[in-house]
Amino acid sequence: MDFLRPTTLAEALAAKAERPDLVPIAGGTDVMVELNFDHRRPPGLLDLTGIAELARWSADGDVLRVGAAVPYARIVQDLGDRLPGLAMASRTVGSPQIRNRGTVGGNLGSASPAGDTHPVLIAGDAVVEVASARGARSIPADEFYLGVKRSALEPDELITAVRLAAATGPQQFAKVGTRNAMVIAVCSFAVSLHPERLRVGAAVGSAAPTPRRASAAEEFLSAELTSAGLWESREPLPDSVQRRFGELVAEAASPIDDVRGSAAYRRHALAVLARRSLGWAWREHSGGGNERCA
């Protein structure tokens, strides 16, 4: 087995072009588990932690670009105000030790349907930046996930960053699990309100082969808010609207029965998560302050 430690992105991309079978390693919180348990014996590891350009975030006007190798702890610390949804999801990942190492790039690289950042990236209309020696391309988050642990990333490509607009309205992320730490989501949900575009973003995780946009729920709520003038009036949301939103979110899922929960439970829980998260987000929009679930 080889161990490559490139110090620039160009060097890493050249290595990946020559040897697409190299396995990138960032925080190692997925890769090392596979190595420790002999589930994987790659011919070589391509360490990304020595590449400064992947470990930075930057702001270009209202758009934030978060390097693929920025650990969750830094997102929580630095970006909680501008990317509240991503920070909220980051805060729920694993434990402090895991958040000190784990990265959004690794979450995308693993493309687990249960990855916590995925619903947030979809709800926030994020773009995944990837690059290879052939050039760079941008993939909308909801086109990135192709199947269970399968993504649109080509074998010679690396994820370089995610790009998403700074929040213009409230964002929420919520997940169901047995405790507050160390939980792989039984199901998860993210919602973003985009008042300037009169649009709502909503997506589910751990409830289908891929993280998934809840399009019908988004359309329904965007239309209700606009037609009733609620974006401006900021009046309380009718119960019926919150409930219907929850139902439509649950309908977007196609969950399975597994050790963490049954399909029926996941559908039910998603409807509840969606209704509650929307309630928290709307209260914030109405001036009730920013509410966070634990």
Partner: peptide, 18 residues
């Protein structure tokens, strides 16, 4: 748990070469 560059991490999840 150990400190790596002053940050607590799980040593079992850090590759030696890192």
């Amino acid at each position: 748990t150990v400190y790596l560059d002053d940050v607590p991490v799980c040593a079992c999840l850090v590759a030696a070469g890192q």
